[in-house]
């Protein structure tokens, strides 16, 4: 998962075979979701055109989740 922040983005990774890292990532997912951030999944090798919203944490996701902020009119 990539979380857009002041460093550019912070990366949170997990190992599909490591329950602890999966649980860590799941908690982060829930935390960010509670903070009203939005998760979009980009499949491996894809571009923004292939983006889809993500509503639940899936440790077997093939691709990358990018966390962004909701948009508003300027």
């Amino acid at each position: 998962m990539r979380i857009l922040d002041s460093s550019g983005d912070t990366v949170v990774t997990w190992d599909r075979h490591d329950a602890d890292s999966i649980e860590h990532a799941r908690r982060v997912f829930c935390q960010l979701h509670a903070e009203r951030r939005l998760a979009f999944a980009v499949p491996t090798g894809g571009t923004a055109r292939d983006t889809e919203p993500v509503r639940a944490f899936d440790p077997d996701l093939d691709g990358e989740i990018v966390w962004v902020r909701p948009v508003q009119g300027g």
Binding site: G8, D9, L38, A48, E52, V68, R69, G74
Partner: peptide, 27 residues
């Protein structure tokens, strides 16, 4: 005019603003 919430608080680099809008626009 569409911006990410909090964009004017100097939270992220400019390129992140475009990533934010780009993904929202497509998804």
């Amino acid at each position: 005019c569409v911006v990410p919430e909090g964009h004017d608080e100097g939270l992220t680099p400019p390129a992140d603003i475009w990533t934010n809008l780009l993904l929202t626009l497509h998804a």
